[in-house]
Design a protein around this nucleic acid. Sequence first.
DNA 1: AATTCGGGGCA
DNA 2: TGCCCAGAATT
Length: 345
Amino acid sequence: MLIDWYVKQKISLPWRDLNPNLYRTWISEIMLQQSQVKTVIPYFNSWFKKFPDITSLANATIDEVLKSWEGLGYYRRAHYIHKASKLIIKKHNGKIPDTYVELIKVPGIGDYTASAILGIGHNLPFFAVDGNFIRVFSRVFKIKGSKSKLTKQIKKNLSQRAIIDFASFNQAVMDLGRTICRPIPACSLCPISIECLAHKHLQTDKYPQKSIKKNKPNYNVVVGIIYKKDNFIITQRKNEGLLGGLWELPGGKIKKGETRENALIREIREELNITIDIKKKLPEIRHEYSHFKVKIYPYICSYNGGKVALVGPVAWGWMNMNEVKTKSFPKATHKVFNLMDNVSL
DNA sequence: AATTCGGGGCA
DNA sequence: TGCCCAGAATT
C-alpha cells in the first residue's frame, strides 16, 4: 500500500533518478538537513558543476565551498562536508564508507544521514528517521515523547515489519510526510490511514506532540559601509560558530543607553582599530535567525584614519559592489547591499 | 536533555 | 506571523 502509493506518485528529484551514486546521495542528505526539497534543488544542481567528485571537493578551498553554500544556511554543514571530503580521500581512498560505524565518524553525518546513505544508497535494512518519519509514525503508532525517544520507538516498532525494499520504504515515508501527512494532514488521501491510530481516534492534531518554543530575543545592530574612494571595508567571520567563514560589514550590537552613531564608532574602533566619519543613515533592515532577531541600522561612512588591526574578524579587505559576488555573505548583509543600488557617497 | 547552528516554503 | 523543514554537534 505505502510502496504502491510511492511508486505511483513518485516525482523526479535530482538526487533520485539522475545517475544516482553515493557522492550525490551524501551531498543531497547533508543539504537536506533542515532544508526543504524545493530550497535544495538549485543548490544541488549547481554543486556538481563546481565539485563533480569528492577529489575536486577535497582540493577546493573552504571559501569556494562556502560560496556554493551561500544562502542555504547552517554553514557548519559546508565546513563539515569539506572536512569530510578530505577525510574520505585520506582514510577511505576516496570511497564513502559503507558501514554505520564508519559513517557516523564522518563530520556532519549523524544517525539520520548514516542511515539514509545505508538505507537508501545501499538498500540496506536501516530506517532514516527524519522529521517526516517522526510525524508519520508518531501518528501511526500514536506515541509521544522526545525526539530521541520517538526515534528509538519508531525503529523498534518498524523492525518487526517485513520490509524488502528499504530504499523505497524510506523514501516513501518521506514523500508521505512531505505531501500528505503534513502538520495539517490530508488523511483522506493517505494510503495508510487505515492503520493510523491517531487518525482512528481523530487526534492527528495531537501528534507529534508540539515542543514548547522559546521566543527569540531581539538585538539592535549597527553596521558601517566604510568607504575610501570607491571601495568599502568587509570583514570575515571566524570559521566556528554563527555564519562561520562568511564575510560581512563591520559593526556590532548597540549597548544600553548608547546612540547608534556612538555604537558604530565604538565597534569599528574595537574591531578594526580605525576611526570613521558617519555620512548617511540608510533604512533599517530586519532579519530573523534561527534563535534571535536583529534590527540592523546601516550607515554610509568614510574612512578617517588608523591602521587596521583586527579584533574578532579573521580577515578584512576593500571591495566594491561589483565584487560582492566573489565572496560569501549572509542573507542579512545582502539585504544591506540591496539598499546600496541607489546610493552614492 | 537542551542549545546552537539559517533561510525559506507555506498556510 | 508561526510552524517546520530528508539534523548534527556541543554543552
